[in-house]
Amino acid sequence: MNLRVEQRALAQSDQDDVIVLGPSPADSSFSATSTEGAYKILGVRPGLTISVFDMVIGADFVGRFATEPCVAIDFLFEASGQGWILGSDAEQRLSSIPYRPGRIYIMVAPQGSVGLYDVPVGTRFKGMDIRVDIGLWQKLGAGDLLANLDEHHALHMASGNGTWVGVLPVPPDLLAVARALFDSAMVENDDLAFEARALDIINASIAAMRRTQPAQTVPPRDRRPLQRARDLLIAELAHPWTLDDLARAVGLTQKRLKSGFKSLYGFAVYAFLKERRLLEARRVIESGEMNVTQAAIAVGYSNPSHFSQLFLRRFGVQPSRVLALRSGEPVSSERPAVPASGPTP
């Protein structure tokens, strides 16, 4: 194994030993492979550890992971493969979680969790894993969120056996913070700046979870059709959706679709679709998978000029500029989204 491993506590953390809440390079699954790269586990403070990793996966990177009770916030800059939440017998695969770059994964496991992972040989796996134990999560004022996470939550991707996983695209401003934190862990020793960036990311993740809590005013009978409507929009971004088409597809009236969707997900239907289209377009442009015109068409915009105007308004930068900088440098002029309702997604 050519994986360089470091484990230490930050200078101000008041810890002698780092308690690893999640997977560790000391696990046999790491040592049994020819994985190359760097893996660091940093103890920020009691109850808070951060792992940063940049690895090229060797052979047979398939195995089981276990985590202590915690909330895990994961950024993946480069990734492939998938994981599974396991059932109480530690054998049954309950839910799968695809590993994809450009996303934040939030795993909530109040009682701990076990699962499986499978990453293809040759994959570059680069990112960070922030683990907050349940006691510290509650001290941060987010304990109430733990009781409101189910399959109806807007961020829900997978759940089972007491574990909940949500996923959201990385907002551009938060991506810049994440990259700065990653760089400071890999090449610098500015522990105070590292801790500050980590707390910024945790705070932003809590805010995202709180913004998208299910509204209690949505009738229970409408929740599943509304979730189906959301899934259809995400699965078919390029489809020329109308409210009538979407309402008929999920068995709701337009009125119940419009009011319920806004209450449950915090966006009007068309604003949600526009946001998802632009985030996906940004992802494929940044990754180099598509040029600007291809990305526009892939997410439903036949007019590249109109697409570029919407992209600029959303991210504060032209898509052609993002294409030019896709090597990894953050674009400092980006700004958070202000979703606008309207008839044109």
Rank of each mutant, 00 (worst) to 15 (best):
L3R: 07
L21Q: 08
P25N: 12
F30C: 09
S34K: 14
T35Y: 05
K40Q: 08
K40G: 01
K40P: 01
L42A: 14
R45H: 05
T67K: 10
A72F: 01
F75T: 10
L76C: 06
L94G: 08
I97N: 06
P98C: 04
P98Q: 02
G102F: 00
G102V: 08
G112D: 07
L116F: 02
D118L: 09
T123E: 09
M128L: 13
W137Q: 04
Q138T: 12
N148F: 07
H152T: 15
G162R: 08
V165H: 08
P171D: 05
L174G: 06
L175I: 03
A185G: 15
F194W: 09
S205A: 15
A215F: 02
A215R: 10
P220A: 15
R224L: 09
R224S: 07
R224C: 00
L226I: 14
Q227Y: 08
R230M: 13
L233I: 15
L237V: 07
P240M: 05
P240I: 12
T242L: 12
D244G: 07
V250Y: 00
K258N: 10
G260A: 07
L264P: 01
V269R: 02
A271D: 04
L278D: 02
R282Y: 09
V284T: 14
I285H: 02
A295V: 06
S302G: 10
N303R: 12
P304K: 12
P304V: 13
P304T: 13
S305R: 12
H306G: 11
S308M: 12
F311T: 01
R326A: 04
P330W: 01
V331L: 15
E334L: 00
R335L: 09
P336R: 10
P339K: 14
T344M: 09
